[in-house]
Write a protein that binds this DNA or RNA. Structure first.
Lengths: 213, 213
DNA sequence: TCAATAGCTGTCTAATTAGTCAACTTTTCA
DNA sequence: TGAAAAGTTGACTAATTAGACAGCTATTGA
């Protein structure tokens, strides 16, 4: 962007990051609600309270903006993924992981929804990520479960389905919030509601897998 | 629709239903993939291989088409909902319900995805349905679980979370198919894969809830 | 057979869309 | 302080959008 020989009297500013983050935050909400095609740059601009042209100053086009939003989300995601460590007892490991996942659903519901929408659409913008980090992560965790089964620490259940069940159950409280609110006759999901959900999920998963606790 | 006094020499044709269904099918796929805002009438028309004006002959506007698609989907949904009957032993009832739900994910993945997208967007077009049929259904099933708990037929777990867990786990195999395919390193989910999934879910839910089987 | 109605579609329009650009203001630092 | 670069934005464009409509063909039943 800058000419190579310019020793211009200017340093890349920190306004940049501030404005970028403001736009990214508005974009995340809009993309999570309406998907890539359904979101409009105009609505994102209004939500972030900046002119539309300002978005195009920071992001070359809509796809690039979406890519940046996804990247942000995946970084958050990875943090939770790594919570599932291989040492310690199965009960501790899974309990901590379920707590971390439920906590993510509570604190980052739009990130969860964005990811879900992308998946339901066939994950056209996630193939690279899924093929790399995710695939490796999944394989490694599978082998942890298998060693637990071999050691008689849990029942002989296909670990893949256990992981899917944990993901599905925990993300449900972010993705399907309207359904839960109406079923439970409440106005909004409190922190206590998430704690209760985590507790029930842990109880069923641990006992259901025959894990001592 | 027909003027009340017309004894015109024409009977409402059956071409109507045929063409409507063709359009509805294409619309379901498009809406499931791109959401309400992201879907376009042009793409639906191309997918159904009819001129765009033909869609507007059968459906007054985009929202009306979306409403008809949702209505179709909800009718299918109700069928599965009713599978959870109140008599018989918990193990039988839940086993049959989980099988029915997994089967729905296999045979009607787009319906499941459409419903999921609508939910993630905040269910703006489903409030009426959710407030009526769904709310009543949920209350009734909750009381069935509670009677099981009172009879000592299952552990004391909040039934709402059990139901959410079953819904989440079974719908996951339709909604998050790309993630599962990459994790399991397969090209597509076979019928056997769904059977295995149902088997694992049943095992965990039943044992996890302390239900004898 | 034929007229009445259902069914169909090419062509148009007004609104919205993503993206461009040149002119402008603000920030930086030597 | 001043000039260079970063940051900003109103006004524009070309493409796409949902939808309207007039005129057409196909189907029906008496």
């Amino acid at each position: 962007m800058t000419t190579s020989l310019s020793r211009g009297p200017y340093k890349p500013g920190r306004i940049r990051e501030q404005s970028r983050d403001l736009i990214l935050q508005a974009a995340e909400a809009e993309f999570a609600c309406h998907g890539f095609r359904g979101a409009t740059m105009q609505r994102i601009a209004e939500s972030a309270q900046v002119p539309k042209a300002n978005i195009h100053y920071y992001f070359s086009n809509k796809l690039s903006l979406y890519g940046s939003v996804l990247e942000n989300t995946l970084n958050l995601w990875d943090t939770v993924f790594n919570e599932l460590s291989s040492h310690d007892e199965p009960a501790d490991v899974l309990s901590r992981y379920i707590d971390a996942k439920i906590n993510f659903s509570r604190t980052h519901p739009t990130a969860s929804r964005l990811f879900a929408k992308e998946m339901i659409s066939g994950a056209p913008h996630l193939s690279a990520y899924l093929q790399q980090d995710y695939r490796l992560w999944f394989k490694q965790r599978m082998s942890v479960f298998e060693s637990w089964i071999a050691q008689g620490k849990m029942d002989n259940i296909d670990p893949a389905h256990v992981i899917f069940m944990i993901w599905a159950s925990t993300q449900y409280y972010a993705d399907f919030e309207p359904q839960i609110l109406i079923a439970t006759q409440t106005e909004q999901l409190t922190e206590q509601a998430f704690i209760n959900a985590a507790s029930s999920i842990k109880q069923i998963i641990l006992k259901g897998c025959g894990i001592k606790y």
